[in-house]
């Protein structure tokens, strides 16, 4: 594989810069503002709280109500505010991924509301939103088996690359593979792909994506630990 530089100067397996801010939303039980390249996403967690209507609640576990939402202003052409099939599907699979981490059986008959809002979108929004949502859940103090870390990998202009931006995703031969793992257990919790690749390249993309996920996980951990400095002045 050629080590050609990408249009924004990144190497094939470089991620875009990621910045994490925790506890940004006062009204929420946990929150995270995540900047991932040009993507900006806010994730909040409310609950566990009472579920309405009541018949939708589950007597053996909390229901995870995950919403993936793109702001009307997030795309070049105004996006319709009505959630489409794509938004619904992403909400479902992302919520499922988080449910594999959160110990839902501790809160029967309740709902945990996890809302993500994409302010600006530049490809890879579902993995950015899920990474932020997992941080917001940990910030809310929810009991979890681990964190959910997520990255997209794929192919663009005959090159296997990690973390594609919109320009790379629009390439005619683009392959987009979104993956999330329960970390540090390394269990795959979300996996979606479309494109046209042989099995060898598929395995290669998967391998690279897992490496990217480990990088994201380290960043998530660092952000959580740094929120609570043990040393230093007591702040007023």
């Amino acid at each position: 594989m050629s080590e050609e530089k990408r249009h924004d100067g990144r190497k094939p397996n470089d991620l875009r810069p990621i910045e994490i801010k925790l506890g940004v939303n006062k009204n929420a039980d946990g929150s995270c503002l995540l900047t991932w390249g040009k993507n900006v996403v806010l994730a909040t967690v409310h609950g566990p709280k009472q579920m309405f209507p009541k018949h939708l609640s589950n007597p053996s576990k909390a229901v995870i109500d995950y919403k993936y939402r793109m702001a009307c202003i997030s795309t070049p052409e105004r996006k319709s505010p009505v959630p489409g099939k794509r938004d619904k599907e992403i909400s479902l699979v992302s919520g499922n991924a988080l449910e594999s981490a959160i110990m839902v059986e501790q809160f029967p008959n309740t709902v945990i509301e996890i809302n993500t809002l994409i302010f600006t979108a530049d490809a890879g929004t579902r993995v950015a939103a899920l990474t932020a949502a997992s941080l917001a859940a940990a910030d809310a103090g929810l009991p979890m088996k681990g964190l959910i870390s997520s990255v997209a990998g794929g192919r663009s202009n005959k090159q296997l690359v990690l973390d594609l931006d919109k320009q790379e995703e629009d390439a005619p031969d683009a392959v987009d593979l979104a993956c999330a793992m329960l970390m540090p257990q390394k269990e795959i919790a979300l996996l979606q792909m479309d494109g046209f690749v042989d099995i060898k390249e598929t395995k290669e993309i998967l391998k690279n994506t897992v490496k990217g996920i480990e990088t994201v996980y380290d960043m998530q951990k660092k952000a959580l630990i740094e929120k609570y400095p043990l040393e230093g002045e007591i702040n007023e």
Partner: peptide, 11 residues
Amino acid sequence: MKKIVVPGDFL
């Protein structure tokens, strides 16, 4: 020495 841990950390 106090130590902060995150969900999933091996103890």
